[in-house]
Amino acid sequence: MRRSRPGRTDGVFRLLTTVPALLVVGLVAAIGVVLCLDARLSIAAFGAGFWTRTDWDPIAGQFGAFPFIWGTLYSSGLALLIAAPVSIGIAVFLTDVCPHRLRAPLVFLTELLAAIPSIVYGLWGIFVLVPAVRLLQEALPPRIRALPLFEGPTVGVSLLAAALVLSVMVIPYISSVTREVLRAVPRHQWEGAYALGATRWEATRVALRYARVGIVGAVMLGFGRAVGETMAVTMVIGNSPQASWSVFAPQYTMAAVIANEFAEAVEDLHLHALVEIGLVLFTTTLMVNVASRALIWQMSRDRRRRLAQCPVAAETP
C-alpha cells in the first residue's frame, strides 16, 4: 500500500534523492581513483617493494614506506594494548557495575574524550605528555634502559608518547561500541548466570564471551581510528623515519609523513610516493569497515540462531 501512484512528483523526488545518493558512493570511488592516479609514478617505480624498503631518500629519488608502516602499526598496536582493556573495563563498569545515578555523567565524560579536537590533544601532548615521558625514561633504572625495548637517548618525543595520546583518543570509540554490544547481550544471559549462583565477575565473563565477536569489532574500529590519526601523532612522535623496537625512539607514521611533506615535495615521484601512502591508509579503512561489518553480521546471525534455540528469551531493551 506504500506504493501510491508513481506520479511525476515521485519521479522528481526519486531523482532528487538518487543524485546525492550516487554522489556519496561516487565520492568514495573518486577518492580511490584520484589516489591511484596520483600515486601511479610511485607504484610503477617501486611496485610491491615500496612496502618493504626502508630508505626514504628524496634526493636520490628512492622511496620505501616501511618505516612509516612500522611506526603506524607499532604506535596503533601499542595504543590498542592500552586502550582495549581499559575500554572494555569502562564498558563493563558502565553497563553492569555502576550505580544508576552515576551512569549518565560517566558516559558523558568518557564520550567527551571523543569530542576534543586532535590538535588540542597534540598541544597537550607537546607540553605535558612529552616532558612526562622524558621524566619516566630518565627515572628507569639503567639496566632496563639498556633493553632494546627502552633504549635510546631521552628525547621525550617518541613512539610511546604517540601511543599514549592515541590510546586516550580511541578509548571513547572502543568503549562506546563495546557498551552497545554488551547492551545487546540478552538479559537472560546475565540472569541465568546469576541464577546459577555466579558472582558478578563470572556473570560478566559469560556476557563478554557472548559478545566477544562484537568486542573484536569495536577494537578493530579503534584500530582504524588510530591508524588514520594525524595531527596529535605528528606533534609528539618525533618524525624520524627509522624503524626501531624502542618505545622511546622517535619514529614516524604514514599520516604524519603526508602532513609534513605533502605541500613541500618538489619532485613528482616524491609526491606520488606520499599519495601512495595515502592510498594505503584509504585501503586500510576500507578493509576495517568491511571486516567490522562482517563481524557484526556474524554476531547478529549467531544471536538469531541462539534465540531460535531459546524461544522463551524475549529481547528486552
Binding site: 556519496v24 568514495v28 577518492i31 588514520g228 594525524t230 603526508i258 605533502f262 606520499l274 579503512t285 576495517v288
Partner: peptide
C-alpha cells in the same frame, strides 16, 4: 561508513 573512517589527511590529499 567508509567515508566516515577515511583518515582526514587523505581527504586533504583528495
Amino acid at each position: 561508513d567508509t567515508l566516515n573512517g577515511v583518515p582526514s589527511i587523505v581527504v586533504g590529499i583528495f
